[in-house]
């Protein structure tokens, strides 16, 4: 009698494994053949918006764009230093010839972030209201966050081909978990006595949600949004593999052709965008929630 199962894992039969893979692949391919077009048309409005927004950023004179961005930065943060820093970064990006790519990336990040917020916050709210939903959603989020991004690019591309929409979907899948998780967490952490007060004065669920839970959860939710933006930026390079234009494509080109400087510059531009988004959203969050933090005196 041989003891080979001790030294070698008793594997499934090769042909069986192959059969499984073939069946699943074929099934999914059939699915995408028959429904791909329908699903694509569902995303049509999104695509049109995406294109419109990208064109808007690309066609507007750079001076106006910078003026608008600086206004937003200043109004959100009320910090001169940050505003000046952003102005210098944008100036350098343009000077080094990365303006158009930066605008493309900016447009897709903005859309992905908005989409993540619009989808993620309601899911987080539902989770916070029910142990069962939380029990279902949490493992899904775990998988979404740990699954290598390349793996779920495959079905998306099979379904929708290469282009902006699959890129957006991939980025959103990758970046949405923090918003969902932290919305759920933030709402669950709301002071029980404040909730009791809300109930004691006869507030209904809607009033409690929007008048008490969401505002008090906002610092946590903002932290989630901030993480989501950062993850979306990180995903931009990977998404460029499936046809998303922007700063990711030169980076990809630099990797395949070993253009170190090209990679570095575009990489730095992504970092600059990340820092701008991060600082501005954090400064805004801090300013908006200055009264939530206990004994802070203005």
């Amino acid at each position: 009698m041989s003891l080979s199962w001790l030294t070698e894992f008793p594997e499934m039969d090769r042909s069986d494994l192959l059969a499984i893979r073939k069946t699943l692949d074929a099934a999914y391919r059939d699915f995408s053949r028959s429904y791909g077009d329908a699903i694509e048309s569902v995303f049509d409005p999104l695509l049109r918006f995406l294109v419109w927004f990208e064109q808007l950023l690309l066609n507007t004179p750079w001076l106006i764009i910078i003026a608008v961005i600086l206004t937003i930065v200043y109004r959100a943060s009320r910090a001169w230093k940050l505003t000046v820093g952003v102005a210098i970064s944008l100036g350098l990006i343009g000077y080094f010839g990365m303006w158009d790519d930066t605008m493309r990336t900016l447009s897709i990040i903005t859309v992905c972030t908005l989409l993540s917020i619009v989808l993620g916050i309601p899911i987080g709210i539902l989770m916070s209201g029910s142990k069962r939903i939380q029990g279902i959603v949490t493992p899904i989020l775990d998988v979404m966050q740990t699954m290598p991004a390349f793996v779920y690019l495959i079905p998306v591309v099979m379904l929708l081909g290469i282009g902006k929409i699959p890129g957006v979907i991939a980025v959103v899948i990758y970046a949405i978990p923090p918003v969902i998780r932290l919305t759920n967490l933030g709402i669950r952490l709301v002071d029980k006595e404040v909730l009791e007060a809300s109930a004691a004065y006869g507030a209904n669920r809607w009033q409690t949600l929007w008048g008490v839970q969401m505002p008090l959860a906002m610092p946590t939710i903002m932290a989630g949004i901030n993480q989501t933006i950062m993850m979306a930026l990180a995903m931009v390079v990977i998404a460029s593999m499936i046809g998303v234009k922007g700063l990711g494509q030169p980076v990809l080109k630099a990797i395949t052709n070993q253009y170190f400087t090209l990679g570095l510059f575009n990489g730095l531009a992504i970092v600059a965008l990340a820092i701008i988004f991060d600082r501005v959203s954090q400064a805004y969050a801090k300013r908006a929630q200055r009264h939530l933090g206990g004994d802070h005196h203005e």
Binding site: A197, Y201, G202, Q289, L292
Partner: peptide, 29 residues
């Protein structure tokens, strides 16, 4: 809810105020 709105109100040990609302808005809750 109607009963709680009009008939009975409550004061809490740790106040239970809304930190993001002004004092006046809290009273008007």
């Amino acid at each position: 809810r109607e009963f709680r709105r009009h008939k009975i109100s409550m004061v809490f040990q740790r106040f239970g105020l809304l930190p993001h609302k002004t004092v006046q808005e809290n009273v008007a809750f």
